[in-house]
Write a protein that binds this DNA or RNA. Structure first.
Lengths: 140, 140
DNA sequence: CCTGGTCATAGGTCAC
DNA sequence: GTGACCTATGACCAG
């Protein structure tokens, strides 16, 4: 399931050609709503606000509303379903808000392993990691 | 170790005369726990639960209990040992549940190579694979 | 309720 | 071809 993981990486973060994690979901605190939703004190990683919401959708869907206000979408029936769908893998059975957006347990665990633990990914055909194989949607 | 492989093939699957894999442990998705628990939308692999338990024993031994119920065998002391025994090769050192039953690492790898990768076996004296040498327990 | 740690298993890889 | 090793994954559990 390496391809899926690759797609998840691409879906959840941005990679430059060298496999370095750049422009990470270390969201700039521009958007008013969610940006820093992890109130817990994270020590080990650099104490930067970590969310996985900014890289997923441009819209404010899946964003946790600060007040539990009603959804402004014209279809409230589907909106309740949307709030249960994982923003990453579209799994209809999400397990709640994780790292700033609605996500399933699997995507949450992936995000935790990847971002919080600062994992690096590289192509196995390029073990040195010198960007011979850029990590994008193409098969290398 | 071709004979052992042959026996393993016979132990783990059913072959018709042509060497086609028939009646395979594509277990009905009865067990709730493991079978394919990836709720993410996986497209590539055929979403069929693959187990190697149904072809081994008629009894429900070695079957993963949906609840962790106690074994109904009258000898509970040996049952704990039985739960550690590979259901395929009777290796007492199994490595847990693999594809739906207790199996060792070797049988698990064999099952993976054979079933998941859809490997075909044929007698080397009949390289065309036109069922001149049926794959059964006899030596051909 | 969410975060982070832990664990069991699937699948890839490699030496023999 | 085989079996051991390794890693990614997802579920489970404690705080």
């Amino acid at each position: 399931m390496e391809v899926l993981g690759k797609q998840k990486v691409l879906a959840m973060m941005r990679l430059n050609g060298a496999g370095q994690l750049t422009g990470f979901p270390f969201e700039t605190p521009s958007s008013s709503t969610t940006s820093i939703t992890t109130p817990t004190t994270i020590i080990h990683p650099p104490a930067t606000p970590i969310t996985m919401s900014s890289c997923l959708l441009p819209s404010s869907a899946y964003m946790k509303p600060s007040p539990p206000s009603e959804i402004s979408s014209p279809t409230p029936s589907s909106s309740s379903l949307e709030k249960k769908e994982c923003a990453v893998c579209k799994n209809p059975n999400s397990s709640g808000y994780h790292f700033g957006c609605i996500a399933c347990a699997a995507c949450s665990a992936f995000f935790r392993r990847t971002v919080v633990l600062s994992r690096r990914y590289y192509c196995r055909r390029d073990p040195i990691g010198n960007s011979l194989c850029p990590l994008d949607r193409r098969e290398c």
